[in-house]
Simulated assay, not measured.
Amino acid sequence: MTTSESPTDTTTSGFFLPVLTDPVRRIGARTFDFSRQVAVMAIINRTPDSFFDQGATFALDAAVDAALRAAEDGADWIDIGGAKFAPGPEIPAAEELDRVLPVVEAVAARSDVVISVDTFWPEVAAACIAAGASVVNDTTGIHHPELADVVAASDATLVITHSLAEPRKPHPKPHYDDIAGEIAGFLLDRVAFAIDHGVRPDRIIIDPGHDLNKNTVQTLELTRRLTEITSLGYPTLAAVSNKDFIGESLDAPKEERLEGSLAAATACILLGARVVRMHNVRESIAAVRMTEAILGFRDPINPRHNL
């Protein structure tokens, strides 16, 4: 593994720039240098009861159109899911596959955007990888061990996320004595598990799981202490968009959480996150690219002022 030669502390920029092992990643048809780049992951939910859009992209045509529009608007990744994280009846693997596979196939045929599938089912992951997905976004911390085997047998990247409950099961009143330390320990344990199953370290991304089996106060503390996660050496994904910790912090309904979402995503980037998962693509792209410019990752596009 290689180590980034970019600044790794706050002495140069004033911001935390984490040391990453293997910062340059080939994911699908695109190459990312996470020592100097932040990727925006757009969200496409083929569910009738999705958390934010309440089924707006459940229809196949609507899902495909939204995915392609997100790619045209500048999204680096498209994350396609067929079952929400929240507790509820189990969605069988076959039904979830029926929802997500046609979207993966359609987007892969028309765009080189990175496609990830949000699933914990090994069979769903395998079919979607074969159809063109290059990321498996598992929000359950590899609940099914076979999922690691599926990723290991491919060139796909695995997102390992912290959560406590079994898939689709409630976890009321979660308790942490040391939230960032416990999440870091969990993620390192699951990373080791994935590597033991053959997943290459340069194919691993970690996600501390904002709001997943965490209340608002816990998620806010996790966000303040995010450097304890981003310093683990793997690119960190922050999935903050329109979540309840934003709504409860601002007393804002779901449709009024955009500004809070952009602020949370920006804070996470300044604390070392290198992928942000967002609903509002155009606004998120602008916020992320501006943050990259502040960090010195990119030059201004049209510098004229006072020149």
Rank of each mutant, 00 (worst) to 15 (best):
L250P: 03
L250F: 14
I183K: 07
L295G: 03
D9R: 04
Y176T: 01
V136D: 06
P303G: 07
P18N: 01
A86K: 15
V288C: 07
E105I: 07
N280G: 03
D112I: 05
T11W: 13
P92N: 13
V135I: 14
P303F: 07
L147N: 05
L237C: 11
I204M: 08
D207K: 07
I294S: 00
V135S: 04
G81W: 13
A156C: 09
P300D: 09
T3I: 14
A286E: 12
P7V: 03
D207L: 12
R304N: 11
A180I: 01
W121D: 10
A286V: 10
N306Q: 12
D33C: 02
T291K: 01
I195W: 01
T236H: 03
I205D: 02
A59F: 11
K173P: 00
V100C: 09
A106Q: 08
A70W: 03
L262K: 04
I78R: 01
C268K: 02
L262T: 04
D251S: 13
S231H: 03
F15V: 01
A265K: 02
A29Y: 06
Y176C: 00
D118I: 13
A264T: 12
L60W: 11
R69P: 00
R46W: 10
V240L: 14
G55V: 05
H143W: 15
S6Q: 06
I195V: 15
V19N: 06
S6L: 06
V159D: 04
N302V: 14
H210W: 11
N280L: 02
D196K: 11
E221S: 06
G82E: 12
T230M: 01
C268Y: 01
P48T: 09
H197P: 05
S163C: 13
L68N: 13
E248P: 00
G82Q: 12
S111H: 08
D98L: 14
L187W: 05
A71G: 09
G198C: 10
W77P: 00
E105T: 15
Y176A: 00
P7W: 00
T47C: 10
N280H: 14
A83T: 10
E256W: 06
V150W: 02
D61K: 13
E72N: 04
P201S: 01
G181F: 02
V103M: 08
L17M: 08
T140S: 15
D207V: 14
A127R: 15
H175I: 10
V107I: 12
G14P: 09
K84E: 12
M278A: 04
H144K: 09
P122Y: 09
A184C: 02
V19D: 04
V64Y: 03
F85W: 15
A293E: 15
I179S: 09
P174G: 08
I205W: 12
V104T: 03
A148G: 08
D112F: 02
A126T: 03
S134M: 06
I160V: 13
E283I: 02
P170I: 08
